[in-house]
Every structure is written in C-alpha cells, then in structure tokens.
Write a protein that binds this DNA or RNA. Sequence first.
DNA 1: GACTGATGTAGAACGTGTTACAAGTCTAGA
DNA 2: TCTAGACTTGTAACACGTTCTACATCAGTC
Lengths: 211, 211
Amino acid sequence: MTSVSTEPRDTDGPTPATAPTGGSAAQRERRRRILDATITLAAEGGFDAVQMRAVAEQAEVALGTLYRYFPSKIHLLVSALAREFTKDVDRSAIRATPGDTAHERIMYVLNRRTRALQKQPKLTEALVRAFMFADQSVTGEIHEVGTSLTTVIARAMHGTPTHGEVTEEEAAIIRIISDVWLSALISWVTGRMDEKDVEKSIDVAVRLLLR
Amino acid sequence: MTSVSTEPRDTDGPTPATAPTGGSAAQRERRRRILDATITLAAEGGFDAVQMRAVAEQAEVALGTLYRYFPSKIHLLVSALAREFTKDVDRSAIRATPGDTAHERIMYVLNRRTRALQKQPKLTEALVRAFMFADQSVTGEIHEVGTSLTTVIARAMHGTPTHGEVTEEEAAIIRIISDVWLSALISWVTGRMDEKDVEKSIDVAVRLLLR
DNA sequence: GACTGATGTAGAACGTGTTACAAGTCTAGA
DNA sequence: TCTAGACTTGTAACACGTTCTACATCAGTC
C-alpha cells in the first residue's frame, strides 16, 4: 500500500507480466487473451460493458488472475489503448505520410486516426473515458500512449518515417496539437461535438500553430 | 430514459431544483447545503471521499433526496464545479484585468485560477476527474463550465470587463487555450506535470497562438 | 379542519469493482 | 521423483453508487 516509489512496478511481489514482454509464453498468451476480451467487450457495449467478471470469463482466466495482470479496470483499459496506439506507431514507421505540407500531413494522420475511432464509438468511449479517469498509478501506461501520439505527429510533421530530431518549439506545438485532439475526442465521445467539429477544431489549431 | 431533447431538464417528472434558481426557499437551501458538503468532502479527501451517503449525511438530507437533486455523483461534482467557476466569472466582471498585453492578461487570469486550484489539490482532483468522466447526460452542466471559462479568457484578452464581441479567430484561439489549460490541469492532477510545467505549457500555447 | 399530491426520510436491496482466501497446478531444482 | 514456491482457480465477501419501498410531512384546495 505504501507504493510511493517513483516506479510503480515490482514493489511488493511476484506480479507477472505487467509489461507486454516478459513472462512465460503462457503468460504472454493470457495477457493477450485478456486484452482481446477487453477490446471485444468495449467495442460491443462501451465502458460499462467492460465488467471485470465478464472480461475474466471471456478471456478464460479467473478473476484473481485478471487482477494479478491488471490491478484495476482503468489499468486494463489504458493498457488496451496503449496496445492499439502502438500498432499505429509501427504502421507510421513503414512509409512516408502523404501530403505536401506539414499541415496536410498532420491532418492526414490525425483524421485517419479520428475516423478509425469514430467507426467504433463504443470502443472509443471506453478507452477515452478510462484514459481521462486514470490516476497517478497509471502513469506508465499513460505515458506510453502520449509517446505514441507524439511520435506519429512528429513523423507526419517532417514527412519522413525516420525519427528525426524535433526542436523545442516543434515539441511544444506537437503537445498542443495532442491536447486539442484529445479534448476534441472527449467532446465527441460525450456528444458535445460531431465528427465535423472534431476535424475543424484540429484543423484550426494546426493552422494557427504552424503559420 | 428517452431524454433525447436538447434540454435535459423537466422531461419526466417533478424533479426539483436542478437549476440553481427556482424551487422553494427550503429547496434552494437544501441545494446549497448539498453542494457545500460536496466541496467540503472533496477538499478533504478528493474524489473517493465524496461518497453519496456521506454527502447526504453532512448536508442533512436523505440519500433519496440527494439523488432527487443530483441524479448521480458526477452531476453533483460537476454542478459544484460550475458553481465555483460562476463565482469567478462574476469576479472578472467587476474590474479590468491587469496586464499590458493580451498575453499578460490571459496568463494573469489563468495563473491565478491555476494557483487557486493548486492550493486545494484534493478538491481539484475531485472536480477535474468528475468533469472528465462526465457523459452525455451532464451536457448542461459541462456547457456552463465551458462558457464561464471562455468568458473569463475573452475578457482578459480584450482587457475590459465588458463583454465585447469576439471574432471567429479569437473564439478559436480561446477554445484552444481552454483545451491546453484543461489538459495541463489533468496532467497536474494525475501527477504527470508539476506547477511549473502547467504554467509553462499554457504560456507557450498563448505565445504561439497570439503571435 | 380534512383530503391530495408532491416532497422528504429511513433503510433495505442490488450491481459491479475490488479484495481475501483456500485449494489445485505448474515449474525449477535437489 | 520429490519438494518448495510461484501461479492459477473458484468463490465468498466487502464497499460504494444507485434504485426501490414504505411511511412521514408539508402546501394548497375544498
């Protein structure tokens, strides 16, 4: 309970594969099944449908095991989000982003991601709400998500899949764009913006920041 | 349950004072006691300490009555936030904001608000997390908060307490600043940023947007 | 003053996230 | 093979948000 150390893992026991790698093959497999079940349930019924007992049942693990792998529902959902975003980063590394200007390229990647999320509104609702609700204990997973997003935007900005250096100013701009995108996503999830509003608000932000 | 109307109030029954005004004096008084209890509990122990039974007890109303006034814990907390923010707006209407440039004035009001929030970290945590977790049913209260924030920034931008017109572009800039401020606040609440980071990130955003 | 409908009260009950625990199973090393 | 310890299972229990029920109170109307 007194986990005040800076790194939240490995403080008090033999907790297994909190990280995607490590552990036995059976453990990695269990972890995969759990995250798959999470995504499936979230896609069907959103945040409320991701019930720990249901996830455990669908993943064919005991409830206690589920909690051994993911210490809370929020950790579980944010980890699922992190896994999805990581896939995106890998994809963005393969080829250059289409578009002639930084503005066009950034809008391309963000809109593509936005539309993908909007095709699965329930899933998005679950993941975004978990992300927003996360407290200090989820710092690691949150950071992973942030890094993925930053990397993708940075690559789009430069137009190359290579991981070029970014200046201080560019980093600041990227952070602001991320903030705006996330805020817009929240507004969309909670029904305060429609798809057009989301694209528009990001477009305006990018235009103002890159001028 | 089928409250798809644009205005969420008065759809299905004799629900009393959802709005701050209206109802008998005794009802306004109960509403005030409930929100006071909410703020007190939140200030002491944060989101988790705002337990519906505890709020009801401290406000000296029955649990059922509490739910009649505020249909969920989230509504309750966001309403409390809205009340606090409204006080701010009233204050900002009284006198001009100090500062020679829009940048200085905006930073002045946002930093003042930020520091006030940081003096009561538990309270802020409770309010911000509720705000983030709010779903569609809380649209009204959320909108109230957003309007307050926008108004305060707009006044600071122009340097006058009068409610002058804002251009499309100014409105867009204000929205982005709000987004950044909120994101920074979340990061601070969840321990991913310290006070300096918050001020800095807003300062950078304002500088980039007002240049 | 008595009736009536809305409002408030007290407390039980339910659902779901989380924790606890006893017992079974698997793995590494002797 | 045997044993120790970690891991997994199944299940019960607990906490808190939320709902429900039966009764009390209060305001307005006859």
